[in-house]
Design a protein around this nucleic acid. Structure first.
Lengths: 159, 159
DNA sequence: CCCTAACCGGACCCCAATGGTCCTGTTTGA
DNA sequence: TCAAACAGGACCATTGGGGTCCGGTTAGGG
């Protein structure tokens, strides 16, 4: 089904959430328990997602008491490809690419040798062209949109 | 990893193989055992793939003795999206789309409501734009192309 | 007329990867 | 000094895909 991991879905939710109320001041870090209660995603899962996002430098972490997470870039500068790469690893459709030491030994017969590269690039391109800001905008009509102005989001790394 | 099923990979191999030596006359059907030995893919798997492709009308089947499969369209008219849809079902990245009766119950909080649609469409577009003919062309230089005319395999009763 | 080759459409099992949880550090503000 | 929160693991359960097999049906050939 060409499905992508549910964790990635959560990551998008978390990132958007992170942008939703980080507007005021950049120091307004959010804790993973807080995000968990806000989004309904179980806390350990949120923590796991945030760790991965932090490792990919999509979010910044503040350790210790009063710690938390905050976005490292605006939603405009985060593409879907970035998120997928952060959570699921590099975008590669086939096992033929990496672990080629599998069944493709019979490369004289296996005719797909590297053919999926074309497809991989196409998908990479398609995914890189969509930002989280676009995803947020493309959501439910706007009848559901939180009434807050949310322009202040970009006023982020004010520091 | 956004990976697509290995079956789809096999399907591409099988389809290209089907095109390799069906050129002469359209009646030159190939049997799944024959394709299996030619491609190195286990026979039951080839059969399974061909069944799915047949159900999707990508190939035509001829039952009975001297039966087999042959392409229903040229490789130019078969997109990667067609193959993926035939094997893995409709292209939809998230479980949120179909089985929405899952964890997304809290749609007031779950902020991704239908946002992946944008991504799905982008991927659909990217995949629809690549034909199997392109994939075949994009293969290894041609220095690796099997030198044999590969007709020998088709030596099944030339009838 | 029967037999065999091949497709058809299931059911079936095994395994790996994912989703999800938890526990033990380590950091840091109050 | 303590508590809150991140870091980085290890750890299980489950799902779905990969792969196999079997009975049934069709149709050409002896």
């Amino acid at each position: 089904m060409l499905r992508l991991s549910k964790l990635t879905d959560y990551a998008v939710v978390v990132l958007i959430r992170l942008a939703e109320l980080a507007p005021s001041e950049s120091c307004a870090v959010q804790t993973s328990p807080g995000i968990a209660t806000a989004t309904g995603v179980p806390e350990p899962t949120v923590a796991k997602v945030l760790k991965a996002l932090s490792a990919a430098d999509l979010v910044l972490s503040q350790r210790g008491a009063r710690g938390g997470y905050r976005l490292n870039r605006t939603l405009n500068d985060i593409s879907v490809a970035d998120v997928i790469t952060a959570i699921d690893g590099p975008i590669a459709l086939t096992a033929c690419v990496d672990g080629a030491t599998g069944s493709c030994e019979v490369q004289g017969l296996c005719a797909v040798k590297g053919r999926w590269d074309l497809v991989n690039e196409a998908i990479q391109g398609a995914l890189s062209g969509i930002s989280l800001a676009q995803m947020r905008a493309a959501s439910v009509p706007f009848a559901f949109r939180v009434p807050d102005p949310l322009p202040a989001l970009s006023t982020f790394p004010a520091e």
